[in-house]
């Protein structure tokens, strides 16, 4: 199955495992995704957009896991194992967060997080 997937990539002259970029390139991409997520967390007031921003930040973390594991002296498979855990936990977080958003909308008739005064401690 994996070999079938790799056939179109070979046809596009995009060889798997033949990477030449230094690690800093993947780090910069992950850093850019983190900054986009931080901007979203600060600037947005819509609860669903805040969830978007959190998902983007988790995605940046997973890219870092996989990239640093690949660029280790003897490449470690542990990074991929931990990114599986991270993806699964991101799925649970999205499910609970979306349930909270739906419930808050039902109770307060609004998803602006500044208007959800009932959640204030």
């Amino acid at each position: 199955m994996l070999y079938l997937l790799s056939v179109p990539l070979l046809w596009l002259n995009l060889r798997i495992g033949d990477l030449l970029e230094p690690l800093i390139n993947y780090f910069i991409v992950s850093l850019a995704l983190l900054c986009v997520g931080v901007y979203g967390l600060i600037a947005k007031r819509n609860a669903i957009r805040l969830l978007f921003a959190v998902e983007i930040i988790i995605n940046a973390a997973i890219i870092n896991f996989v990239a640093f594991a690949r660029y280790y002296d003897t490449p470690l498979i542990t990074g991929q194992t931990f990114s599986l855990f991270a993806i699964a936990l991101a799925a649970t977080e999205a499910a609970v967060g979306l349930a909270i958003i739906v419930q808050a909308f039902r109770l307060n008739n609004d998803i602006d997080v500044l208007e959800l005064k009932r959640l204030r401690g």
Partner: peptide, 11 residues
């Protein structure tokens, strides 16, 4: 696609 470039197709 970045993961494919990083040689980890399963992820």
């Amino acid at each position: 696609a970045l993961f494919i470039l990083l040689d980890s197709i399963f992820i």
